[in-house]
């Protein structure tokens, strides 16, 4: 199925419109609460409670280290997924070589090395 240029441009404009709506609505929906409650606490007490001068580091690895654990697992899943699928790609290239009798180049690598 070929995608028109018109469809792509409408999708891009819709996306930009949605982001604009969300940005504008962020200025309209002011709340009564201190919207910096958590960040003020980290700034004030981060140095004494964790002992590291880099507050970003103390948030990433100390206060919210569980999320960083999750992010590392996502990285691991991505890496293993790429590895498992590359095994399948190698096997299919191998099968294609055995059928044709000569060594073919994978389309993926030619496209990458052309850059």
């Amino acid at each position: 199925m070929k995608i028109n240029q018109i469809q792509i441009t409408t999708l891009i404009f819709l996306f930009i419109f949605v982001i604009m709506v969300i940005t504008v609505s962020g200025k309209i929906y002011q709340t009564d609460f201190d919207s910096r409650a958590a960040s003020q606490y980290y700034l004030n007490n981060g140095l004494e409670e964790t002992g590291s001068a880099n507050i970003v580091n103390s948030i990433v690895w100390d206060f919210r280290g569980y999320d960083t654990l999750g992010e590392e697992s996502v990285l691991f899943i991505a890496a293993t997924g790429v590895y498992f699928l590359s095994l399948a790609l190698r096997k299919s290239i191998d099968r294609r070589d055995k059928k044709k009798g000569e060594k073919t180049k994978s389309k993926l690598l030619t496209k990458i090395t052309k850059i």
């Binding site: 990285l75 590895y83 190698r90 096997k91 290239i93 994978s106 690598l109």
Partner: peptide
């Protein structure tokens, strides 16, 4: 290690299993 695994996977597509 994550980056190394991904780069290794791409290089090794040139070689049979």
């Amino acid at each position: 290690l994550g980056i190394l695994i991904i780069v290794y996977s791409f290089i090794m597509t040139m070689y049979p299993p």
